[in-house]
């Protein structure tokens, strides 16, 4: 959710290496990154920070997973891929390699999924994978609203 952005970022890992001159930190081994409701797990994460404090993060591993609460709803968005690149300026996360994103009950699968944590919109593509893989999207129908207010005068549901 949007409030996550202003929360501190907590990172824990087996080992860490901070390069003060370049502003690059590499975390390795059971990496967990938490920011508000966002939680990411990876084998390795590289966090770069520019002079203005903006950060880009690349997480890799057998499987990078993340989970974040949706804004204003009690629903979660979950994703997994071989690699995840995130930019705190654009608020865009790019999942690459066996990428899956589940939002509520909707699910998309592809080689590359670009997810905007600000607009909560995502775009899925087969990416440059050699076998020209296909994308899959499973969109659950909205539950029918059977309340009286929703019914037309002729008694049928809209």
């Amino acid at each position: 959710e949007k409030a996550d952005r202003d929360k501190p970022i907590e990172i824990s890992a087996d080992r860490g290496n901070l390069d003060q001159l370049k502003g690059v930190t590499v975390w390795q081994g059971n990496v967990i990154i938490i920011q508000g409701t966002l939680k990411l797990n990876a084998d390795r994460a590289t966090v770069s920070q520019d002079k203005q404090g903006n950060q880009t993060m690349q997480a890799t591993g057998r499987q990078v997973t993340f989970r974040q609460k949706m804004d204003g709803k009690n629903d979660w968005i979950e994703g997994q891929a071989n690699q995840l690149d995130y930019n705190t300026v654009t608020h865009v996360a790019v999942l690459t390699g066996n990428a899956r994103v589940k939002r509520g009950n909707d699910l998309v699968i592809g080689n590359v999924i670009t997810y905007n944590t600000e607009t909560e919109m995502y775009e899925v593509s087969s990416g440059a994978s050699s076998n020209g893989g296909r994308v899959t999207a499973i969109i659950q129908p909205k539950p029918r609203d059977n309340s009286p207010a929703a019914k037309k005068p002729d008694g049928n549901a809209p």
Partner: peptide, 10 residues
């Protein structure tokens, strides 16, 4: 270099 049990809060 943080050798083990590394934690940081930015």
């Amino acid at each position: 270099q943080l050798l083990s049990n590394a934690k940081v809060t930015y």
